[in-house]
């Protein structure tokens, strides 16, 4: 059989190799460059946020020039105040991003993403209508840089505006752009305001430091066991039964706002791989942003099948992310 196996594996290699299409070293370089750029972009976003704060303090970045047939500036300012009160009344929590002003043309802003459920409202006071378009920039994992539409809100501009509203979760994006589009009917005739709140209020930049998979070791020491991870939400993640043999600690990292429950079950023996559970231990791990590695003491496992499940609980509907790895103690 040994010779047959040599032949079978050689055949497997020969049969599989022609079907492999390496993406190529250029793709590697692009991916690494994009990730480094994304990390640098986070610093840029912070600068943008700071400059936005300066603008709110009374240093507008450019003068506002109303259209020739537009309403007087004082009236536009009044309408802007009406719109702002409308969105604040409907969404009074602290804003994670917001903007207000007379409708003078296309507006675009890049905002960092936030954890949790985002509640976005836009109101327009005056005449015409405006549309707010929110698009997310995908992370490098997606293999695409094309922005993805997250929300599109059209607000009718009236004397007593009713906000248009959308709720969404932003976890999978690097950042978002918020654009005021389709403004022609309201240009110079209305004021707008939009504001977004998060049920966590916590920024969540997608950098490698926020990836729990990067917090647990990748270059494992001898004697390590298996590992895993993934998105955690109300749905339980289950490893199935997989053998372990050694004296272990369990490195766990969780990105999120809730608590991760790690349940470890051991089967009675190697000969009973999915049978009687001989021991069960449950650990609670606090999730945070950015995730930090926490080592749980597991102890000795003598060649037994082990099952690990991850359950995540949080007040926020946004999912968390977790990773774990059995390491020698």
């Amino acid at each position: 059989m040994a010779d047959d196996l040599e032949d079978l594996f050689a055949g497997l290699r020969a049969d599989t190799m022609p079907r492999i299409r390496p993406p190529g070293v250029d793709r590697v370089r692009r991916t690494v460059r994009r990730r480094r750029t994304a990390t640098a972009a986070f610093a840029g976003v912070l600068l943008l946020a700071l400059s936005g704060t300066v603008a709110l303090l009374g240093f507008p970045s450019r003068p506002r020039v109303p259209a020739a047939d537009s309403l007087p500036q004082t009236e536009l300012d009044r309408l802007t105040g009406v719109a702002d009160r409308a969105v604040t009344a409907g969404n009074p929590g602290p804003a994670v991003f917001s903007r207000r002003g007379p409708v003078t043309g296309f507006v675009s802003a890049t905002e960092q993403i936030y954890l949790g459920e985002i509640d976005l409202q836009i109101a327009c006071a005056g005449a015409g209508s405006v549309t707010l378009l929110v698009r997310g920039t995908p992370g490098s994992e997606s293999g695409s840089t094309e922005r993805v539409e997250v929300a599109r809100l059209t607000a009718q501009c009236t004397a007593e505006p009713l906000p248009a509203e959308a709720t969404f979760v932003l976890g999978r994006f690097v950042d978002i752009t918020v654009e005021l589009v389709d403004v022609d009917s309201a240009r110079g005739r209305a004021g707008f305001a939009y504001r977004a709140t998060s049920d966590t209020g916590r920024p969540a930049a997608r950098t490698e430091t926020n990836d729990p998979g990067g917090v647990v070791p990748q270059d494992l020491p001898p004697g390590s066991g298996w590992g895993g991870g993934g998105e955690v939400s109300g749905r339980r993640l289950d490893s199935g039964w997989t053998p372990l043999n050694g004296d272990f600690r369990l490195a766990v990292a969780c990105a999120g706002t809730g608590t991760l429950r790690v349940t470890l079950r051991q089967a009675r023996s190697a000969a009973d791989p999915e049978g009687t559970v001989a021991a069960t231990r449950t650990y609670a791990v606090a999730c945070q942003y950015p995730p930090k590695r926490q080592d749980l003491v597991v102890g000795k496992i003598r060649n037994r099948p082990v099952n690990l499940t991850l359950t995540y609980g949080s007040a926020s509907p946004a999912p968390g992310e977790a990773a774990f790895q059995f390491l020698p103690r």
């Binding site: 729990p212 990067g214 895993g228 991870g229 993934g230 199935g240």
Partner: peptide
């Protein structure tokens, strides 16, 4: 290690093993 610990939002390594 990535194959068993791999970070994926839509597919987890745990599902992968199964």
């Amino acid at each position: 290690n990535l194959a068993v610990s791999r970070w994926r939002r839509t597919r987890t390594a745990l599902n992968f093993l199964r």
